[in-house]
Amino acid sequence: MSKEFSTFKKVIRLPHKYGAGPTFTRFYEGLKQGKIYGTKCPECGDVLVPSRSMCPKCHVNLSEWVEVSQEGVIVSWAQTDKDFFGKPGQGTYTVALIRLDATGCDFLHLLGGNLSKVKTGSRVKAVWNEEKKGHMLDIKYFEPK
C-alpha cells in the first residue's frame, strides 16, 4: 500500500442569481395558484410539463398554455434513507417520474404519504402545501390514490 500524505479540506461556495425567464416564471405563478401548467406543441401535439418555451423534438416555439391534470401514473421511482450532501429534508426520500394524464413527457417529483403498496403503474395525485411560494416544492409530493 502506498504512503498516504495529508489532505487539504476546502469548501467552494459560489453565489448565483438564476434568471427563470418568462416560461418558468409563468409555471411558478401557476404553482402559487395550486395549478400545474404545460405548453402544447402545435406540430406534434405533445403537452410538455413543466412548461417549455420550445419543443425539444420539433424545435418550434411554444405559446399555447394548458392546465394539466394533477393526477397521473408512476413510470419509475427510487427511494433512499441515506444522508447525502444537499439532501432536502430528513428521513426517507422518494423520487419518481410521473406521467400526468394527457401529457407527452414524464414529470419528476417526490412521492409521499402511505407508500407501502406503491409500484410502477400506481396512480398518484398531487398534494399541495398550505403556503405556496411559486416554487417546485409548493407541491409537497404525489400520493397514491
Binding site: Y18, G21, F24, S53
Partner: peptide, 9 residues
Amino acid sequence: RRFDLAYPE
C-alpha cells in the same frame, strides 16, 4: 443584462 430570458432561451 438578460434577465428577460432563462439561460437556455
